[in-house]
Simulated assay, not measured.
Amino acid sequence: MSLFIFLCSLYIAPWMLGFAGWYDNQPYRDILFYLPLQHLLFIGPIIFFYTQSLLNPSFKFTKKEALHLIPGLLYLLYITTMGVYDKLILHDYYFYTNGMDKDFDNWYQKTGLVSMIIYFILSIKYYNSYKKLMYQVVSYADSILFKWIKTYLFAFLIMLSLPILFDSISYFFPELNSYKGSWWFFLFFSGVMYYIAIVGYSNPANASIPFKMEFNKNPILLLNDVENNNTEEAVIDIDHEIFEENISPEIQKLKIKIETLIQSEELYKNPELNIAEVAKKLDTNVALISKTINRGFQINFNDCINNYRIEAVKTMFANNEHEKSTLLGIAFDCGFNSKATFNRAFKKNTGKTPKEFIDTL
């Protein structure tokens, strides 16, 4: 996040320093010419890396991630080459004879915008895949979806839309294309940048489920095997498609085992229950448990466990426990970890709010 804010600040810098007279006086003019300040090809990858680092505790910057920085590095090489030729070889302006800063070249501005749009789309896809994965592997998905991430991505979308918006408006108000007229663009840009910074720093994400993600493939859940000191991998079908109307005998048999285990040991009362714990108790693998729940119960793991919790809540309501305890207290006793999740799950299961349901007893 700090690097993103730094790059955004550099993006504004040429305009602010230009107003301070740097383009009209030496050596400041050459500093702005030969020192690239608008690193448009880095902003998109940085946002993408930031999103991954928030959602995936196993995310590491590797050589594969470094490939995303190649376009930005090529632009730096391009600017450096021109600077070396002009200042060290020719000792005069050659590439800058028109007196225009290369950061403002139309091709670079448009390429940078396209790059940021592509990485914005990748970030949205990554978040959506993460969301689907969490519903498949934990019973507390709502609490780790970090919905504010979608908020900052939406703010980033607004930031990307500003150049397009102002280009359209400038068709009717040409003065917006002038150096002074662009004040409005940079004002809105700065406002969105500050908003992203405030939202990002005030909403820390504590993701705890490590995984590997490749686009157009199902994510791989990483399971820590403490006893053997290694990491197991489980491919999770995040789309939980039902491939057959009649489930196989093997799936049906495992489904019964899952039902018996959850009910007999009241696993649903564990607010941090995850699919790995169920697999371990049944001495099988996570991928098979996920497949069985998807095909056997025809819902994801999160909804499956929440349904057991709702049934336990309804039982307590029938026993008039709501007259002795608060609704939230009952929800917590049955495994929910927040009021919002409880109300949403109860409404989804019964079509009524808890109070409406009590009135029907």
Rank of each mutant, 00 (worst) to 15 (best):
V192R: 10
L165K: 02
I158K: 04
V199F: 03
F215V: 03
Y194V: 13
I198G: 01
S208A: 09
S202C: 10
I209V: 15
S190M: 12
I220F: 01
Y127P: 01
K180N: 13
Q136D: 12
K147Y: 10
E214T: 11
V138S: 02
F185C: 05
I247E: 10
W184L: 15
Y194A: 15
K125L: 13
E227Y: 06
E241L: 12
V199I: 15
I198C: 02
N228H: 14
E232Y: 14
A197H: 03
I144R: 08
Y119I: 06
E233T: 09
S139M: 10
Y152G: 00
G181M: 04
I158M: 14
I149T: 09
I247N: 08
N203I: 11
I144F: 01
S190A: 13
V199N: 05
L160H: 00
D239Y: 13
F154R: 12
K212Q: 15
W148R: 08
Y140A: 06
L222K: 04
K180H: 11
M213W: 09
N224W: 14
T231K: 06
I149N: 03
D167K: 04
A205T: 12
F172K: 03
L145I: 06
S139N: 12
V192H: 08
N206F: 11
V138F: 03
A197Q: 03
L153C: 07
Y152W: 14
S202N: 14
P219D: 06
S208F: 02
Y126P: 04
I121Y: 13
A207T: 06
I209H: 00
L223Y: 11
A207R: 03
L176F: 15
S143Q: 13
Y152L: 09
I149S: 01
M134E: 08
M116V: 07
L153Q: 10
S178I: 05
S190W: 11
E175T: 11
S129N: 14
I121A: 14
L162Q: 07
W148H: 14
S161K: 01
L223D: 13
W184I: 15
E214Q: 14
N203W: 07
L223S: 11
L176Q: 01
D142N: 14
F156L: 07
E214I: 06
N177M: 10
S139V: 07
L157H: 07
V199M: 07
K125E: 15
I236H: 00
K217A: 11
Y171M: 12
A155L: 15
I198E: 05
S115N: 15
T151Y: 12
Y201R: 12
F186H: 14
W148P: 04
I238A: 06
F243C: 03
E241K: 10
E244P: 00
F189V: 06
E214Y: 03
A141I: 09
L157E: 13
V114E: 09
S170A: 14
E175L: 10
P219Q: 02
F243E: 15
Y126D: 04
P219I: 02
H240L: 09
L176V: 02
K131T: 15
F120V: 04
D225W: 10
L222Y: 07
F215T: 05
A197M: 04
L122K: 04
M134H: 00
M193H: 09
H240K: 05
D142A: 12
N216Q: 09
Y126C: 11
Y140T: 07
E227A: 10
S168G: 06
E233Q: 10
